[in-house]
Nucleic acid binder design. Structure first.
Lengths: 337, 337
DNA sequence: CTGTTAGCGCGTTCAT
DNA sequence: ATGAACGCGCTAACAG
């Protein structure tokens, strides 16, 4: 109700100048204990709270960082966000998270907003790796860290996962279990995760002298629907695969759903492994074998990189971090009986 | 690199005053086309972007709203957030989302941060319905809307779901299907969702002349672990229930997990229904019967209420909205064979 | 149509 | 140890 008290109100009430109040508010020391006490009392009585807007205005820093993800409802990203949040708050920064829903336009709007609003750093999983839509933003020289998907047009610090490596492991495991005709549901090939996981698949086959069958390479878009469709697709072929590797969590869901409908039974008729763990995986029967990543950790590392940049604005070279995933072997990849 | 251009730089370059530049930047009209053209050119050449900080400073509004949820990794909340986001951006507001991880202290910190930073409105699902931790914040007279959990100590607009109603329907359905010994895994009874859902359970039993069995009332904390434990618990009793109603999505997961381990088979030995839908529910075998809520809609309504408050700061009475849930009947609640 | 001016609330010299 | 005064970038009110 009452309009907010300003630093000046406090100063008057405590019979000092605003400068002195500022000193105690910012704990800069060099204020006589008694005066300080008087000031603190005044602050409480007026329930004064400092105005971060005015403060950023003169300090030229906001102590906030922007975080952009494509889809906040995807458990992978909400975990990553959670990791960033924890680290950021810990370090005295406040994360401002927004989801683009994979919409490039929205991503640009958000970027513009951040620019106007002022943020000290940005962590982003872009909706468009090849885009030049960061041009404007980059002019500001605000530090940027790319997570999970690189920003190919820009030299920014990047935190990725071992996509190729993870897929390689998973597919190799399927092969060891005795599967031979392994199909893959790929992600979009213009995304790094999509492409790299495919490469890992190919590499694993080749390493075992198994030729890549074009009919076993299916394209999906990381959404559930495509996993579903591609499995139906595979099932309708004259020659069916004996195992399927799905390139992400959502497509795995769709794939499983389709298999159920077809009564194409995992463990009996077909083997399965997927990239990215997801709660459901352990509830399936049989439980799913997946490539798992430490998602919160990924977020924490991203912030660490960012903080580093924010501290020393010195333009050191672009850094890249690749977090190794691990294969979680459950029942879906067991040799068929 | 180049330090940001200010409105004054633009003014000089275009040979006008800063006021005129401000007019075109804010599309207020009343500027001669030629001058406007000149100004726009200058803006582009300098890649000027307006400073929202300075602007909020004088306007005394930030066009941002705060959103506080207990757990961003819970699909329920991420959907609600998504709904808020969409509506807010649409209306020209920018949502700043933060998760408290059910930590009251963190919630307070966030509140303080919002206060300092300045937000035009707040949407919150508190970690503590009875808390008075909003005292400070309330002094600011910034509009607040409570979602999913009321703020009992304050008279703020509130958006809830029909908790009692939903639970009532679900349990009634179980009864109709022929189940008699229905257990409930409750949520914390000091939360509205926890308490109300329990009331709905009791009401359904009573309406059908079935006494409430103390042994069938189990306490959980909305987390997976408690669902798991309570099912094990129930199973160990001399008299076992023939159906279980779980009060939220995470506990349902835990419950199902326990039933699997016990080979207490849904559809054969026991019936099941839960509150809140979740992706997994449809992947289970049998698929889960659940009380479903339109989560994004809940978020959209919350923003609508907030916007309304922000417009007319007039202190009208507290409003309450209750969104009716719907029962999604799948196989887990089918009569046992 | 356009310019002048006075703050918004705070941090920061530079004095004292 | 404390105060005076300036300025951050912008908008609003008032002149012209």
């Amino acid at each position: 109700m009452k309009k907010k008290a300003t630093i000046l109100d406090v100063a008057r009430k405590a019979n000092v100048s605003s400068a002195t109040v500022s000193r105690v508010v910012n704990a800069q020391g060099g204020v006589k204990p008694e005066t300080e006490a008087r000031i603190i009392k005044a602050i409480e009585e007026l329930s004064y709270v400092r105005n971060a807007i005015a403060r950023s205005m003169v300090r030229k820093e906001t102590k906030t960082i922007g975080v952009i993800v494509p889809d906040i409802t995807n458990p992978f990203f909400s975990q990553v966000i959670s990791g960033v949040e924890e680290a950021a708050i810990q370090a005295g920064f406040f994360p401002i998270v927004t989801s683009t829903r994979e919409d490039l336009l929205l991503e640009q709007q958000i970027l513009t907003h951040y620019l106007e609003r002022g943020i000290d750093g940005l962590i982003i999983t872009t909706a468009q790796e090849n885009g030049t839509h960061l041009n404007e933003f980059m002019k500001s020289s605000i530090p940027v860290v790319a997570v999970d998907r690189p920003l190919k047009q820009y030299d920014v610090d990047t935190v990725l996962s071992g996509n190729r490596e993870g897929a390689f492991e998973a597919v190799s495991h399927l092969i060891e279990e005795g599967f031979k005709d392994i199909a893959i549901i790929r992600g979009p090939q213009n995304t790094t995760p999509g492409l790299e996981r495919y490469k890992g698949y190919v590499k694993a086959l080749e390493a075992n002298g198994i030729p890549v069958q074009p009919d076993f390479v299916c394209d999906g878009d990381f959404m559930q629907g495509s996993g579903y469709e591609q499995v139906k697709n595979l099932y309708s072929q004259k020659r069916k695969p004996d195992a399927v590797f799905s390139s992400n969590n959502f497509m795995s869901l769709g794939a499983i759903r389709a298999m159920r409908e077809l009564d194409w039974k995992i463990g009996r008729d077909i083997g399965f492994a997927g990239f990215d763990d997801i709660e459901v995986a352990t509830f399936m029967e049989p439980a799913l074998t997946v490539v798992s990543r430490r998602m919160k950790h990924l977020g924490a590392i991203a912030f660490q990189y960012l903080e580093n940049r924010m501290e020393k604005k010195g333009e050191s070279a672009k850094r890249e971090y690749i977090l190794s995933p691990s294969l979680v072997i459950r029942d879906s990849s067991k040799r068929l009986r």
